[in-house]
Simulated scan of single mutants.
Amino acid sequence: MDPATSLFEHHRSRLFGLAYRMLGTPADAEDVLHDAWLRLHAHDLATLDDPEAWLVTVTTRLALDRLRRAKAERAHYTGPWLPEPLAPETEHPDTTLERSESLTLSFLLLLERLSPDERAAFLLNDVFDYSHAEAAAILEISEDACRQRVHRARTRLREGRPRFNVDESAQRRLLRRFVVAMEEPTLDSLRALFAEDAVHVSDGGGVARATLRPLHGADRLARLYLQLGRNLGGARYELATLNGAPALFMRQGDTLLSAIWIECGDERITAIHALRHPGKLARLLAVTKPGASTSLH
């Protein structure tokens, strides 16, 4: 392995973790890393006083440019956009890196509240532990401007956090109850699962059938899943782990229909997210081997 590649591989996991949190899709993160690797190969290594800082700077700026373009594209996305999961951690070497709440799909969705500049400053400072001065240098802004971006980001994220619960045991219990309710669906059994102000978000990307806007309220969610339960006879449910948090795969035969994750509080589901976009599911299915999840049917 040549010196540049060896250097890059040494820092690859950290760089991927940063790019993925910035962009919310593994493929985009890999593209950013490929571009960073090309730039490193074109650079004279002898001139790098701090190779890691140089790589983090290049990766951050490339991810920022790509995120700005993605934000513009997502404005025309059909229905809600949800982040794309990493492969289950047993299948993806990069997921062992910096495992934390900041990698969960619910947190990645929360990050969508931020502008690209706020997202970069927040991640560098709060997740990757760079000082305001170090983050400012990476972003080519003043230290005061960096502090302001981080402050705004924290404020925006706090506004969304009251509904955000990372109690994995509670999530697993509720997912199991959800499966039981879906196997013999009734309005009462489904309604009992949801908080009064629960929200359902589904990403079909205009390709798969999905709700085109978030649905709110226990009654509406219960009626939606009652209809789905009746229409999806023979569906198989599997408990899985996506981005370090409990999730549910819904399959019919060899087809992965959706990947579902939830937020909860007081033993009720406060938010349920259903990823139904065939492209995103196909990439997830391609790296999900038999035995990676637990059948609940």
Rank of each mutant, 00 (worst) to 15 (best):
P85C: 11
G206C: 03
C264E: 06
F122P: 02
L224G: 03
D65M: 12
D266F: 13
E143C: 09
D117I: 12
E101G: 07
L193A: 05
G79H: 01
H151N: 10
P3N: 04
T25K: 09
S169R: 13
A75G: 08
E118C: 03
L232V: 03
L281E: 03
P80R: 02
Y225L: 03
Y77L: 11
E52I: 04
D219I: 07
E134R: 11
L212I: 07
K280D: 02
P3H: 05
A136P: 07
L175K: 00
R176T: 02
W81D: 08
E134W: 06
A75Y: 12
A36W: 07
K71D: 11
L215H: 09
L157G: 06
T155F: 10
R209D: 15
L257F: 04
T211K: 14
A198Y: 10
A70D: 15
G17L: 01
H216K: 09
A235P: 03
R161S: 13
W54L: 08
L139N: 12
V179A: 00
V127P: 11
D219E: 15
L228D: 06
I260G: 04
D49H: 08
R209Y: 15
R177E: 01
T60E: 04
E52M: 06
R173A: 03
T5G: 12
H132P: 02
I269A: 08
L193P: 01
T211G: 13
K289I: 06
E52S: 04
E143F: 11
R276A: 00
P26Y: 09
R230Y: 10
A192I: 10
A222Y: 05
A259D: 06
L124R: 00
L55D: 01
S169Y: 13
W54M: 08
L175A: 04
Q252P: 00
A72H: 07
V287K: 14
F16T: 07
K280L: 11
A192S: 12
H92A: 14
T90R: 15
